[in-house]
Simulated scan of single mutants.
Amino acid sequence: MTRFTPAELEAARDRLVPDVVADGLQVLFCGINPGLMTAATGHHFARPGNRFWPVLHLSGFTPRLLKPSEQGELLSYGLGITNVVARASARADELSADEYREGGRLLAARVERLRPRWLAVVGVTAYRAAFDDRKARIG
């Protein structure tokens, strides 16, 4: 994996990372927003130590452990990735309530257009903020 300097990571702030999507997915996974490592590489959940890829495999969604750089293979398994908020930041707490709400509105439209069988929001806090559902629970 490429090592980035702090300056290179900071330069990735506010970048947009393209979704990995197609019509009729089985599951559309939705993160909060891209982190700086994701924005720097252009690959979702790219930070070393991120549990998304290992958990995806261990849960049986993929036949092998994929690297972030192999994210395009998800489509062949009927899987995709998007985010509630598109812009990259170092931490989710840098996002405003308005960004979460607007992201929720855009996410609902994206789901309506793509028609995945399931939407899996990776982060209950993001779901609560995006859909103004403070009592949403995991599961």
Results as ranks from 00 to 15, higher is better:
6 P>S: 06
64 R>H: 08
62 T>C: 06
130 A>L: 02
1 M>C: 11
30 C>M: 05
65 L>D: 04
34 P>G: 07
117 R>Y: 07
102 E>W: 03
113 R>K: 15
2 T>R: 15
93 D>F: 07
88 A>I: 04
3 R>P: 06
38 T>M: 05
91 R>I: 01
32 I>F: 00
31 G>I: 03
51 R>N: 10
90 A>D: 11
104 G>R: 05
99 E>L: 03
126 A>I: 01
28 L>V: 03
61 F>I: 02
91 R>F: 07
43 H>A: 11
65 L>M: 13
43 H>L: 00
13 R>V: 04
37 M>D: 02
137 R>Q: 15
4 F>L: 07
82 T>V: 05
23 D>Y: 05
47 R>Q: 15
91 R>E: 09
42 G>Y: 03
107 L>Y: 06
11 A>E: 07
105 R>A: 13
138 I>Y: 13
52 F>C: 12
119 L>Y: 03
60 G>E: 02
13 R>I: 00
36 L>I: 03
113 R>S: 14
125 T>R: 13
135 K>G: 15
72 G>K: 01
98 D>K: 13
83 N>S: 13
64 R>K: 12
104 G>C: 05
41 T>H: 06
53 W>E: 07
121 V>E: 04
59 S>H: 05
58 L>I: 01
28 L>T: 04
37 M>H: 14
29 F>A: 08
14 D>M: 08
58 L>C: 04
6 P>C: 03
117 R>A: 14
78 G>M: 00
28 L>A: 06
1 M>H: 14
103 G>N: 10
97 A>Y: 01
76 S>I: 00
19 D>V: 02
57 H>Y: 10
14 D>N: 14
138 I>L: 15
61 F>W: 14
120 A>L: 08
92 A>G: 11
12 A>E: 01
124 V>Y: 00
68 P>C: 02
93 D>P: 07
37 M>C: 09
50 N>Y: 02
127 Y>K: 10
17 V>C: 10
134 R>I: 12
64 R>Q: 10
32 I>C: 11
